[in-house]
Design a protein around this nucleic acid. Structure first.
Length: 917
RNA sequence: GGGCGUAUAGCUCAGUUGGUUAGAGCGCACGGUUCACAUCCGUGAGGUCAUAGGUUCGAGUCCUAUUAUGCCCACCA
């Protein structure tokens, strides 16, 4: 932050003013750049705690980061910053993905604006153009990650097309190729006529669409009066039919098995075959077989040695095998074929029918199944160890329910088509020579054939599925296949974190690639988060126009608010709806924190910094009760928050911390501390100031993973700007490198005593509010302002309450001159008309005569007595149950006994009091 | 056709080894210009935890079924 921005004289006084006075962007950029300059993001390799590694899922270099990225980075950065503070060598390795088909798509779109196609440029110039795009957009991604506060090590940044990862791709390909786990073969694949490439099943989006089911009659050869009825949703594919299949047991068609039928339009003779896969129930029970354009037909065709007839060009139009339909689109041909069938009397019927239609995930075009020669990864042998790694617990998938999804997919896995007919991506590292040899090579360029040494060699023209390189990401980023120091130290990684929507695409592939190629698991824990949806629960998408730009939110509310909102408003694996209200809430919290720091600083400033030791030394029995209470509460919070982070309950931990800060530290502790801070007793003042600072320092550190910028700014204020002190060791200058807080000790007695004070104050405030409500309108204001008289009957707590009289007086708005605290009070000394608050051994009498309706007060006491009775009978019933006493843990039973005793005591006092009405 | 998730206060959602009168934020009602904060403070109303069974001394939490809703997977032409 610039000096102008931190000049205390011109300093804004509230977080709100600060937000107005300075752009979040400037403050955040200041700290981010400074952290980077200090070297905080770059871990060493020598911590006694060892490494903690998260490899960032590389965002596609195809555009802007969206809310999903913001969530991913918030979650990952929370984990990294927390572990870094715990002393691990925490590596958060950033990178970007070349995005294969998506990357090519955006570049083509840009070209289209210049009325050019990639073919106008040719492959080489197109790839140059793609690199140009990447180089323009990568800085944008980097900038966005910085804005989000991602504490990643830019010195290790990777791009999937960098030389290192590219070599890893070739090495892996060659390995699998040489082991026979990658092969080339003719299979039926999904073809996108727009993108002009093969797609894997995962890249297909099936959509239910309304269509028709046509019934067509294929006459029996030589016996035109007989025929077989076939049902189809895609009649135009009949042009490629090479058989009709029926179920072997189907009585309707059994007599025709083995006979020939005439394919209408083409007037070609095709056989009727019997196959178990045919569903007796569906349609007419007879299926036209088009091995060239239907996956099931392809299988049946193979089983029966049927010829495969391809009727489509690669652009989706019909080819010369379609006769008079050549050159038409599929839908044109469909209309034509149907009307021709109708004209010629082959169409028997048509009915409405919804069926699922495959679309290209990227461009939305209807996909065509075609038979094509492609590269495949043989999956079953690779899937087996990948399943085992999860089953044995070596890899943990969170939330656990996703393990079932993972198993199901892995156990039914099919070979993975990895070649894409694109220009942008990793070239298939397979080479051919003029003598007909073929081999895979890990070299970027191959001078000669490995077999015959011919220098006339050329490389396969296809590129690899982008997920092929993504699958290597956990180790290709660390220098593999070389045993670099980074690879040896940081691999296997600790946590991989991503959305559940890419469990198959990415997670599954990283697991089998890691196991196969490195012999180790790629990560210990797989943490899956949910989707960020809009406020109506809709998926955000550009076409819907409901996309929220995280950076716009960061500008308006601050990155800290954005991160906190994203990280705390969800639970693992579940989608979250995101609305402005959520982030406003987080921004309010940031403001609250700012003000708490401002308050504490106003009583001592940074110069009072005595450190933890000094603060703890003033923590003795003479310290005000609130100090001991907040230290104890803080300790519990540290324990709880740490436990939650360890079990990946980031949302719960974040909420716990906010709650502690707001409801306990600010609402109770700081309010109570005002007494001591403003008192004449230097000892109490010092103890309280030190405690307030100590806990505040701990709060900032606990919150730092969630709100890095604000906590750094405030921590600097609190500690007298160590960031500007060149004489300090580098690691002492920032909250980023401060130690994760440890519990300072639980003080049961202080907690219970202060709880009594809290309860007394709450009950008095409550009674006062009731009185205000009952008061006539013109007296409400006066009643609200009035300091009231109180008699506190304290029993054994009398001494404690006397010591806390100031807190009681101020927070309950009592009149300090009319407060009496006594151990006991005989009935005859009790004021006649007083509200009586009964709580355990303590009673508070508020002579609110004239303010309170006595009938109402009697009713209130009666209601309370009824409640106490209810509680008593409930507890008695429970405790009289022998099973409960025997089987429930002693702790629970004791708790119930205590509750019963308390309720009985309360009831006795209430009844005694009621006698006076 | 399989599998998974969700159903808790008016709204959005927490609630991880089952412990006994269920929490938050927002909204709502009443009051408050207290020298950290009106992006605030105090008080309050509001829930048969989808329904029906079951297990258990005890169920929002475990089991079964049902309903609603969402998602994933799948070669019914």
């Amino acid at each position: 932050m610039s000096d102008a921005a931190t000049n205390t004289e011109n300093s804004p006084t509230t977080g709100a003013e600060m937000a107005k006075a300075y752009s979040h962007e400037a403050v955040e950029a200041h700290w981010y750049d400074w952290w980077w300059e200090q070297g905080y993001f770059t871990p060493g390799r020598h911590s006694p705690k060892g490494p903690y590694t998260i490899i960032m899922p590389p965002p596609n270099v195809t555009g802007e980061l969206h809310m999903g990225h913001a969530l991913t980075n918030a979650v990952e950065d929370v984990l990294i910053r927390w572990r870094r503070m715990q002393g691990y060598d925490a590596l958060y390795l950033p990178g970007e993905d070349h995005a294969g088909i998506a990357g090519q798509y955006v570049v083509e779109k840009e070209l289209a604006q210049e009325e050019l196609s990639r073919h106008d440029l040719g492959r080489e110039r197109f790839v140059d153009r793609a690199w140009d795009w990447m180089n323009r957009y990568r800085p944008r991604i980097r900038y966005q990650l910085r804005r989000l506060g991602a504490s990643c090590d830019w010195s290790r940044e990777c791009f999937t097309m960098d030389p290192g990862p590219a070599r890893a791709v070739r090495v892996v390909f060659k390995r699998l190729y040489d082991k026979g786990l990658i092969y080339k073969g003719e299979r039926i694949i999904n073809w996108c006529p727009r993108c002009m490439t093969t797609l894997s099943d995962l890249e297909v989006e099936n959509e239910e669409e309304a269509g028709f089911l046509w019934t067509i009659r294929y006459p029996v050869a030589g016996d035109p009066n007989e025929g077989i009825l076939v049902a189809t949703t895609r009649p135009e594919t009949m042009l490629g039919d090479t058989a009709v299949a029926v179920h072997p047991d189907d009585p309707r068609w059994q007599s025709l098995i083995g006979k020939e039928v005439i394919l209408p339009i083409k007037q070609r003779s095709i056989p009727v075959v019997a196959d178990d896969e045919v569903d007796l129930e569906f349609g007419t029970g007879a299926v036209k077989i088009t091995p060239g354009h239907d996956p099931l037909d392809f299988e049946i065709g193979r089983r029966h040695s049927l010829p495969t007839l391809n009727i489509l060009n690669l652009d989706g139009t019909l080819n010369e095998n379609a006769g008079s339909y050549t050159g038409q689109t599929v839908s044109e041909a469909r209309r034509g074929v149907v009307s021709q069938l109708e004209r010629e009397g082959y169409l028997v019927g048509v009915e409405e029918h919804t069926h699922s239609v495959p679309h290209c995930e990227r461009c939305g075009s209807v996909l065509e199944p075609i038979v094509s020669d492609q590269w495949f990864v043989r999956m079953p042998p690779l899937a087996e160890p990948a399943i085992e790694a999860v089953r044995s617990g070596r890899i943990r998938i969170l939330p656990e329910r996703f393990t079932k999804v993972y198993y199901h997919w892995m156990e039914n896995i099919r070979d993975w088509p990895i070649s894409r007919q694109l220009w942008w991506g990793h070239r298939v590292p397979v080479w051919y020579c003029d003598n007909g040899h073929r081999f895979a090579s890990a070299l970027e360029t191959v001078p000669a054939c490995e077999v015959c040494d011919s220098s006339n060699v050329w490389q396969d023209t296809d590129v690899l599925d982008t997920w092929f390189s993504s699958g290597l990401w956990p180790f290709s980023t660390l220098g593999w296949p070389d045993h670099t120091p980074d690879y040896d130290y940081f691999y296997p990684t600790s946590v991989m974190e991503t959305g559940y929507d890419i469990l198959f695409f990415w997670v599954a592939r990283m697991i089998f690639q890691g196991l196969e190629n490195t012999g180790e698991i790629p990560f210990h824990t797989m943490y899956l988060h949910g989707l960020v949806r809009d406020e109506h629960g809709q998926k955000m998408s550009k076409t819907k126009g409901n996309v929220v730009d995280p950076l716009v939110l960061a500008d308006r509310y601050g990155s800290d608010a954005l991160r906190l909102a994203l990280a705390t408003n969800s639970s693992p694996g579940n989608d979250q709806k995101f609305s402005d209200q959520r982030i406003e809430q987080a921004a309010h919290f940031a403001n609250k924190l700012w003000n708490a720091v401002r308050f504490v600083l106003s009583y001592g400033g940074a110069e009072a910094a005595g450190g933890r030791q000094a603060a703890l030394e003033v923590q003795d029995q003479h310290s005000p009760l609130a100090n001991r209470w907040i230290i104890s509460r803080f300790s519990r919070t540290v324990e709880e928050a740490t436990r939650m982070l360890e079990s990946f309950q980031l949302g719960e931990a974040g909420r716990l911390l906010q709650d502690f800060v707001w409801s306990e530290y600010c609402d109770w502790y700081l309010e109570a501390a005002k007494g001591a801070l403003r008192s004449d007793d230097p000892q109490a003042r010092e103890a309280t100031l030190q405690t307030a600072r100590l806990v505040l320092d701990g709060i900032l550190r606990l919150l730092h993973p969630y709100m890095p910028f604000l906590t750094e700014e405030l921590w600097q204020h609190l500690h007298g700007w160590p960031s500007r002190d060149e004489s300090l060791p580098v690691d002492s200058r920032s909250i980023m490198k401060a130690e994760w807080p440890v519990p300072l000790g639980i003080d049961e007695e202080a907690e219970s005593s202060f709880n009594t004070v809290i309860e007394a104050i709450s009950r008095i405030r409550n009674a006062r509010a009731e009185a205000i409500k009952d008061a006539p309108d013109n007296q409400k204001g006066e009643t609200a302002k009035r300091r009231i008289e109180a008699i506190v009957v304290g029993g054994a707590s009398t001494a404690m309450l006397r010591r806390e009289a100031d807190t009681l007086t101020r927070l309950a708005q009592l009149d300090p001159n009319k407060l009496s605290i006594v151990e006991s009070l005989p009935p005859e000394q009790r004021p006649d008309k007083a509200v009586t608050l009964v709580m355990g051994e303590i009673e508070v009498l508020l002579p609110l005569a004239g303010l309170v309706d006595l009938d109402a007060e009697r009713k209130r006491l009666q209601t309370e007595a009824e409640e106490a009775k209810g509680e008593i009978s409930r507890a008695e019933a429970l405790l009289s149950n022998e099973q409960f006493r025997v089987r429930a843990p002693a702790q629970v039973v004791d708790k119930e006994r205590a509750k019963l005793a308390a309720a009985q005591e309360r009831l006795a006092k209430l009844e005694e009091r009621l006698l006076q009405f």
